[in-house]
Design a protein around this nucleic acid. Structure first.
Lengths: 230, 230
DNA sequence: TCTCATGGCGAGACACTGTATCGCCGCCGT
DNA sequence: ACGGCGGCGATACAGTGTCTCGCCATGAGA
């Protein structure tokens, strides 16, 4: 065996730490979705063998948790508005934007408790915005209600976005032209209200829908924070 | 080769239709979660080879869609209350109960548009409950907002439930005893509000939390359906 | 400077996965 | 009784997450 066919002693012996692993995994997910993330591919991107990762990570789910936490760092704004409502609104919109940048986030959001440092910082920010405006239980319920709406709305939006992308058409076009199944379903007459809505509703802008629903939920929260009797 | 070692001409030649496949898949998922559902195992449960399923199903994701739609059949109540608010409340609670019966539903809810007949029937029911109480766009927005809360709240609840089950303790116990990570995190002092909430909030009942948040959202919807000016 | 022990690393193995291909075999029509 | 057809499953393939184990490069000690 000559020097030439002997493998290099190490392929770019990058020191390799968690951050790099997470970054590589996120890059992979951004490009090809969550299912494109395999430990082998993440390792390959770092010029390492698959088993090397297990020094920094103990399971694939743990890697997903770390990815989610990393994105939560993007979500937390530099500075928070003093107004609780504005603070929650900003947090919500930043979460949505992060999900649009990293569509795979929708698959993970709400799937596990967020115990990472950044995720907890976001939770803290939500609670802090509401702190002192009502008793603790109401504060907690308010934060949870807003978060629930957030998770559901983002998931729905991304799900629709993917469906549209799959057919490559706008929503309106999609349901009319490329959705023969839906058309047939509606034609059965078993869904009169749905049919009416589909045909007569305005062309919807996703961001506007999100913002409107969010405002409604915030209205509801506001009503509970400042009880009408007080 | 004798008769004895020759395989039976067919292992219980069950005619096999979609319903059975879906039922088998749901049973598997109920027992071992979504990841316990593999085409091989589903087929085995029906005394069939894996490839047999492809006559009724074209991909695994499609099977998941069918499972979700099947559960939506459990969700639709026999009869709907006339009161829109009560109708939506019943629908929401039935969805939650279905998710508690089939925890894997939380992983799928909101992940793809619901285009199955039962899923669409549920959507129809939601819209029908709100029909005529406002213009079409408001109706749609209301239904979507409630659905978003529903998806997020269920996902969060199931995520927590799984985390608790993993440690085998009650929520309170969990965060106090078995969550050394969390304890350490809170001890850093970077999450003052969260810490306060964790220590001072009431022991929470999941169903009550869900119901309360739902009521808030329904309040918000009610306010939009009957504008204060009218 | 030479040697030895240590431990990080990766090759390989294992038990699976979803899905495509293809040839057998039982059944139905003639 | 025979022939052709078609549904079915064995087999194959490219992948997956994770475990085990032995190599080899690096450090310490003589």
């Amino acid at each position: 065996m000559t020097v030439w066919d002997r493998p290099e002693p190490r392929n770019a012996p990058v020191p390799l730490d968690r951050e790099q692993i997470i970054a590589a995994a996120i890059a992979l997910a951004d490009e090809g979705g969550l299912e494109a993330v395999s430990l082998r591919k993440v390792a390959a991107r770092l010029n390492a063998g698959p088993m090397r990762l297990y020094g920094y990570i103990s399971t694939k789910d743990e890697l997903f948790d770390l990815m989610v936490d990393e994105v939560h760092a993007e979500i937390l704004p530099a500075e928070q508005p003093g107004d609780w409502r504005e603070a929650l609104r900003v947090l919500a919109h930043r979460t949505r934007q992060a999900a649009l940048r990293h569509v795979w986030l929708a698959d993970l959001l709400g799937g596990r408790p967020t115990l990472g440092p950044n995720g907890m910082a976001v939770t803290e920010a939500k609670l802090a915005a509401l702190d002192g405006l009502a008793d603790i239980d109401t504060t907690l319920r308010a934060a949870e209600t807003v978060s629930s709406y957030l998770i559901g709305a983002i998931r729905r939006e991304i799900a629709n976005l993917r469906a549209e992308r799959a057919t490559g058409l706008s929503k309106r076009e999609w349901q009319r032209a490329s959705g023969p199944h839906l058309t047939k379903m509606l034609a059965t007459g078993r869904f009169p209200t749905l049919t009416k809505v589909v045909h007569h509703s305005r062309e919807t802008n996703a961001e506007e829908s999100f913002a409107t629903g969010l405002d409604w939920v915030l209205d509801a929260v506001a009503a509970k924070l400042t009880p009408p009797s007080a």
